[in-house]
């Protein structure tokens, strides 16, 4: 059997190393590339990302990756987004002015307010371990989170969060101060997380294992 061709997209803004390492830990070798031919021939893609939304879109535009990524996702092959790689899937972000995203999932990326409803100060970025809450999503058991317990801790680093228009794509929620927000999405072939499973100890590695196993089964 030929091994599936799993691609990590490198657009100069990513924690590529840890993502690749998490796959390797699970016995899967990956290709790191920003060549659109590699995107076309991939069986599955991971879009990582750390940094600014606007820079990320600009880099992808410069590398001529936007249409190939959209085409890939529309082909219904497995696609995983991590952190900024999840946010980029949305319509637009208010990060440093307004930036258009890939617009594959309708919704906005908003900044955490610096004060909460009871006027308490909120630290931004959110840095550290926070819980995944199963938001009554019936897809949980069919998703890469299937083996992950409700209330498991994951590692987050972000100042912005996703607000999908269609609530049914919300796979898990997380509560920061008094804000409950979408911390992972599942929409057909797309699985994406605001947290970093590759930095979330054993539990996080299990998420990669589940996602990768599903690909190997196909």
């Amino acid at each position: 059997m030929q091994l599936p061709n799993i691609l990590i997209i490198d657009y100069n803004l990513g924690n590529i190393f840890s993502v690749q390492n998490a796959c390797k830990y699970n016995g899967t070798n990956t290709i790191v590339s920003n060549d659109k031919k590699d995107i076309e021939s991939a069986d599955a893609i991971i879009l990582p990302g750390v940094g600014a939304f606007g820079d990320a879109m600009a880099n992808m535009r410069k590398l001529d990756l936007i249409e190939p990524i959209k085409d890939f996702i529309h082909s219904k092959k497995p696609f995983m987004g991590v952190c900024l790689g999840m946010q980029l899937l949305f319509t637009e972000s208010e990060e440093f002015g307004n930036h258009k995203g890939l617009d594959i999932i309708k919704g906005q990326i908003k900044k955490f307010p610096t004060s909460g409803s009871s006027n308490n100060k909120i630290k931004v970025p959110q840095v550290g371990w926070n819980k995944l809450i199963n938001d009554k999503n019936t897809q949980w058991m069919n998703s890469p989170l299937s083996s992950i317990n409700n209330d498991s801790f994951m590692y987050f680093v972000h100042s912005y969060f996703a607000c999908p228009e269609d609530e049914s794509v919300v796979l898990s929620k997380t509560v920061y101060e008094d804000i409950s927000y979408c911390s992972s999405v599942l929409k057909e072939n797309i699985f994406a997380t605001q947290f970093h499973p590759e930095k979330s100890a054993e539990t996080g590695l299990n998420i990669y294992a589940n996602w990768l196993n599903n690909i190997h089964k196909k």
Binding site: S18, Y25, Y155, V157, E198, K199, S200
Partner: peptide, 8 residues
């Protein structure tokens, strides 16, 4: 270190 641990 990065190859051997997966916490930040």
């Amino acid at each position: 270190v990065a190859k051997n641990i997966n916490i930040p």
